[in-house]
Amino acid sequence: MNGSRKTGLIILTIVAVVGISLAVLFGFQSHQRAQKKTRIVATTYAVVQIADKLDLPLAGVPTTENHIPARYKNVPRVGSPMNPNVEKIASLKPSVVYSVTTLEDQFGKAFSKRHIKPYFLDLTSVAKLKHVVTQMGHQYQRQAQAKRAIRQINAAEKRARQRAKDQPTKVKVLVLMGLPGASYMAGTNHSYIGNLVVLAGGKNVFMSKNQEYIQPNDEAIKKARPDVILRLEHALPKMVTAQFNQAFKTDPMWKTLPAVKNHRVYDLQEPDFDATANMRAAVALQKISRWLYPHTGGNNQ
């Protein structure tokens, strides 16, 4: 009997081990199949950056002059972020299409005609960027990558707070977003660049309850007397930079401002800066922190 019992226990143990092994194997294969079925199309460069940080495969990427990570070198291009090719995207048979909330009104209807429901990610602040990265990390089983990316941003925020901590007064900052055609908008505290200013310990001269950008007039800018001007060269940067330079050279209003008098006008260029938050946020925050408080002592980086 003892021998029979022993043999029975051995057989049960073997069956249990084999069963567990098969369950793990089938579970892994099921997970692999689910990963392969996920066909993500990113229509903005910010989403490409997030996908790259999370080690996610992409079925489509935007047509852009920005550097596309090597892993997406041969991935089909789907048009510019502001004017994606909906027909091309539909042909890729995506399981999900990602854009950003700032472009939702611009082309949401075009997708609905093709029965494609894009997801518009809110990247209007660093906190919302971290939320998106966390959520996508959880959704696609990339929690470790998400946590690593967020730690880098948190470290940059800590350094910026430390740099601004002992300043007697907050630097007044004007955020401008240039637009092709010799026009510009002022970024408020609700814009991404405005949010970086707040995190760096600055004071945005144009505040709003809900608007990201407003149309300021010369009198309002003169009255604000900004100490620093940040010029975002978002769309067609070479053209926008030339426009900014021409306006600051010919319009006497700009020459009256402390920021211009003291040569504290900075151009925000891609890939470190954009209209929406992206995975270069830590670098962008570090740069703005140094521009706002260049003479901070101590061991701050």
Rank of each mutant, 00 (worst) to 15 (best):
A235T: 14
K223L: 06
N210H: 13
K93I: 11
A149W: 07
A34F: 07
G298W: 05
V132Q: 12
R39H: 15
K37M: 12
N299F: 02
V41C: 07
L199K: 13
Q141M: 11
A186L: 10
F248L: 04
N245L: 07
T102G: 03
G108D: 11
L232P: 00
P180V: 08
K113L: 07
K128C: 02
T7Q: 11
K37E: 14
S80D: 08
N204Y: 09
G181Y: 10
M177H: 04
I20Q: 10
S80K: 08
P226G: 05
V78Q: 02
R77G: 00
F28K: 12
F111S: 08
R148K: 15
P168L: 12
P118R: 01
L123W: 00
G27D: 11
L123T: 02
G187T: 13
V132T: 15
E219T: 10
E87L: 08
Y45T: 00
M253Y: 05
A127G: 08
E212N: 14
A284Q: 03
T102S: 15
T13I: 11
K261N: 09
K113Y: 05
Y98G: 05
I40G: 01
V18T: 12
S289K: 06
K93N: 14
V198E: 02
P118H: 03
M177Y: 05
E212D: 13
K158D: 12
A282Y: 03
T44S: 03
I153N: 06
I150S: 14
Q35H: 09
V240P: 00
T241Y: 08
A34K: 14
E157D: 09
V100I: 13
N66T: 02
A235D: 14
A282N: 10
V240W: 00
P252N: 01
R114S: 10
R159H: 12
D272W: 03
N189Y: 15
H115L: 06
G3F: 06
V171E: 14
K130P: 10
V75F: 10
